[in-house]
């Protein structure tokens, strides 16, 4: 079976025997984008969060067949050191990561949240960011999310 989708602004066509294969493994092992992480395989931790058509999706439980024709963004496509996404900029400013393993998932979830809700309140953050960080960097993440919202709104004002 062939599945085609746009990922980080490149169209990819992949071949698979099993359309039920989670998109996570296609991204990691076929397309070799390792920034999207495996944590639980049951949508329970959020380490594998990506964007599908701009919405946060936990790719460990998203069959590859459903990716047909979709636009996908992973952490590698969110921003670059030369052109960081406001969320990445805020994460650097607040020195959020410790081990770093879960952080791409959190940044993708945050970027999707800011798309839907540009200035989230603490309560909005509590209700929509449900990923797990075992180093428990939540305190700095909250600060970084507020900072990212501010950076994003400033950059929108300048456009």
């Amino acid at each position: 079976m062939k599945v085609s989708f746009r990922i980080n602004n490149t169209v990819q066509t992949i071949h698979t025997d099993d359309g039920e294969t989670p998109l996570l493994w296609i991204i990691r092992d076929v397309l070799n984008l390792k920034g999207t992480k495996f944590g639980c395989g049951r949508s329970a931790c959020g380490a594998c969060t990506i964007h599908v058509d701009g919405q946060a999706v936990r790719s460990c439980s998203f069959p590859v067949v459903l990716a047909e024709g979709r636009t996908i963004t992973t952490i590698e496509g969110l921003g670059t050191p030369d052109d960081p996404h406001p969320v990445q900029k805020a994460w650097i400013d607040e020195i959020v990561p410790q081990c770093g393993y879960c952080q791409p998932g959190f940044m993708m979830a945050t970027a999707a949240l800011l798309n839907n809700n540009p200035i989230p309140s603490d309560e909005d953050i509590d209700n929509s960011i449900s990923n797990i960080c075992r180093c428990a960097t939540y305190y700095r993440m909250r600060k970084a999310i507020h900072r990212a919202a501010q950076l994003q709104s400033e950059s929108n004002d300048n456009k």
């Binding site: 390792k34 050191p81 960081p84 650097i92 959020v96 990561p97």
Partner: peptide
């Protein structure tokens, strides 16, 4: 001083055992 692995971790570089091939 900011962590020296900060950039790598924010931009999703393959640093971990799980990322090895």
């Amino acid at each position: 001083i900011p962590r020296i692995d900060l950039q790598d971790k924010v931009f999703g570089k393959p640093l971990f055992g799980m990322d090895a091939e």
